[in-house]
Design a protein around this nucleic acid. Structure first.
Lengths: 226, 226
DNA sequence: TCGTCAAGTGACTTGCGGTCATCTGGTGGC
DNA sequence: GCCACCAGATGACCGCAAGTCACTTGACGA
């Protein structure tokens, strides 16, 4: 979970973080500043030196908390991803009334609206983030991911009676695939975005939420009519 | 299209490529060597200096043919992608007998088997390759892509009578999304691959062709039962 | 109060993408 | 067949960003 500004202002950190609590706060601070920078630019444009400067730390200090740039962004992804899982769980748990494939598709797609940072990071996961990171560092992430896949997957299965054993997690894997792919198409590099303004290239433009909803609905209808 | 070794050995290039034909041959040579390197490593591990060395050229010469590393890989992707489109067109055109959603799904998924380089590059398209490249350089690619999307999309629509106007291209966009996403999951970084050997993480392992076939079949069944 | 040592620092190293002043071989004109 | 020209080729060099490490300093316990 990324701390909000209120929490940030709560208390000035000592110059040296010796208590675990303070270390954690410093870690959060670095993650927050990284996210702030990433929001308005791209992975390549976020320099470790800039992160350090914004966090009012020396560059070396950032590397005390995260051994590589990739590890930093992997941690950021972890924050965003699992807080999204928690939010989706909430929506599935507390939603009233009958659930249909279409409703689930909409719920999921909308839960990802405004989560551009998350989906952009997700799209880089294996291509970039898992480079230059040791197995030690990826393992906890993968294990948490598996856990979330199984537990949220089970919740999805409960909601839609036509789903069979294992369909839930598989649905989430397809969701991940679609999110990754659609985000790449919808949220392209600035150069390409400009290009796609040209009317004759309009068919290449992709509305993320719309297209994701459509794809998930179709996917679930396919499972229902099996 | 990437030239084969036979074509490569056909004729020694002059030291200076002055004719367009020779320039094209040199360009191909660079692309071939890039692909050879990329096959066994990753984007980050392919150094421009290595490409030059393998092609028996000075580093500067490579930059005469491709202005940036990203442009080089974009050109490589273009080669692989459009030759795959052509191959798929052939399969759609010459396939005998009745076409079903399941058959189309299988045909498409199998046409991508052994195309790991293509799908890995595709997964990097917007995240990496379109960075550091001018609009001038991306435009032809996008235009060709649009053309292929429309023409191959139309072929797909012809094969499956239950598809409506526009379903073909849209199917291909969802295909792109799924390919990108599934490739990321199936063909992970070496670190992660090692990790996934552990039995308790088995559910995170993804069989690319199998999973793609399943997803496409479900997707098409969803469209059929609309 | 002060000694200890982990947290913090930033100048430095490394490595790679990209440049450009210089060189040279193919070609066209004679 | 010779030569002048210049586009193609070269590789030493540059800039930049990730990552290191010898040194400094402030929190805490004795």
């Amino acid at each position: 979970m990324v701390s909000n500004t209120a929490a940030k202002a709560k208390r000035a950190l000592p110059l040296r973080a010796r208590k675990d609590e303070d270390k954690e706060a410093r870690r959060r601070l670095i993650l927050d500043e990284t996210l702030a920078l990433y929001r308005s630019t791209s992975y390549a444009d976020v320099k470790m030196a800039d992160v350090a400067e914004r966090a009012k730390l020396a560059k070396g200090t950032v590397f005390l908390y995260f051994p590589t740039k990739e590890a930093l962004f992997l941690a950021l992804l972890e924050d965003l991803l699992f807080s999204w899982f928690a939010r989706l769980d909430g929506l599935l748990e507390h939603g009233e009334g009958r659930w249909t494939g279409a409703r689930l598709a909409r719920t999921v797609a909308e839960s990802l609206e405004g989560e551009e940072s998350l989906t952009r990071l997700l799209a880089m996961l294996q291509t970039v983030l898992e480079q230059n990171v040791t197995a030690q560092q990826v393992l906890p992430f993968k294990e948490r991911l598996l856990g979330a896949l199984l537990s949220t997957g089970a919740r999805v299965e409960q909601r839609l009676p036509f789903l069979k054993e294992g369909d839930g997690p598989r649905f989430l894997i397809h969701l991940h695939a679609l999110v990754t792919g659609l985000r790449q198409m919808a949220d392209v590099a600035p150069v390409a975005r400009e290009l796609l303004q040209q009317p004759h290239l309009a068919p290449l433009r992709v509305d993320f939420t719309g297209e994701l909803t459509a794809a998930l609905t179709t996917l679930l209808r396919g499972l229902e009519s099996r």
